[in-house]
Write a protein that binds this DNA or RNA. Structure first.
Length: 275
DNA sequence: ATGTCGGCCTTGGGCCGA
């Protein structure tokens, strides 16, 4: 069974590349992030022509996740219990609850889970964090903590569990093209990396994919300044597999061909083959 | 690194988010 994850940076803008890639790579399950479209705007008919069922989660112009599957798509869950939302710093209180407190902000569409071919799989788009001193960064860490709790419960129910997507954290210094450039930036701070190891400690294994060229397993390269061609990238798209799934991993690779050519996403797909 | 994308509206240019 072939599983994959890909931050497509708008499913509408990427539709020709997505259809081309699905036909060529033929994953059984594809997790998508940054679809940037409402659930009812997802091109389900187009991917359906290639044999995929769709479960999408989205509410507007930002974020958005989805799962495509050729091997069944059951028990779809949008969001997870305890998932925090983002409260903007300048947001004015409108309706207070009986205790005079602000109601919690609604979660953003960043997580969707489903059972496909006997594997419980989550497509995740972790908040970016922007800068370590911002409210967005605190939100990112809160989101990770809530995710860890939710996946602990998921694992108890589903031994074959995958959590994959755009984690917006580079696990180690060798997962960024130049650690010196990232000093003081988000994606590499100790607190973010601890969020990853805390998540792994629940019972996951980091399936590191093979780069098809060069030594670096990068999955993302900024559009600017020819960074892809200089291999100035990061590994931030991760594939966390529970032990029963990790034991079935035959190979894993980064499809850097999908980052080339006309109209690519700034992320490449990560492909994992299971026995 | 701030060199490019994508989405949206205040639309053929500017702003936000990454």
């Amino acid at each position: 069974m072939r599983l994959a994850t890909w931050n497509v940076n708008s499913v509408k803008a990427r539709l020709p590349r997505l259809l081309e890639w699905l036909a060529e790579a033929g994953p059984d399950v594809l997790c998508l992030q940054e679809t940037k479209c409402p659930a009812d705007g997802f091109p389900a008919a187009e991917v359906g022509e290639l044999g995929y069922e769709t479960a999408a989660h989205g509410d507007g112009r930002w974020n958005g996740v989805a799962i495509l599957s050729k091997v069944g798509l059951e028990d779809v869950t949008r969001g997870f219990p305890g998932e925090p939302g983002y409260r903007g710093e300048s947001e004015e209180p409108t309706l207070l609850d009986d205790a005079g407190a602000l109601p919690p902000p609604p979660p953003e569409p960043r997580a969707i889970g489903a059972t496909c071919g006997g594997v419980r799989i989550w497509s995740l788009y972790v908040p970016n964090g922007r800068t370590p001193d911002s409210a967005h960064y605190a939100y990112k860490l809160d989101w990770f903590a809530a995710l860890r709790t939710a996946l602990t419960d998921e694992l108890a129910e589903h031994p074959s569990l995958v959590a994959t997507g755009d984690f917006n954290v580079a696990p180690t210094d060798s997962d960024v093209w130049d650690p010196a450039v990232f000093v003081g930036s988000t994606h590499v701070t100790p607190a973010e990396r601890k969020a990853l190891t805390d998540l792994l400690s629940v019972g996951f294994h980091d399936v590191v994919p093979k780069p098809m060229k060069g030594p670096n397993p990068f999955t993302y390269w900024d559009y600017r300044a020819g960074m892809f061609h200089k291999d100035q990238g990061m590994r931030i798209d991760l594939f966390y597999a529970s032990t029963p799934v990790a034991e079935r991993v035959e190979s894993a690779y980064i499809d850097r061909e999908a980052r080339k050519g006309k109209g690519p996403s700034d992320h490449a797909p990560v492909v994992v083959d299971l026995s």
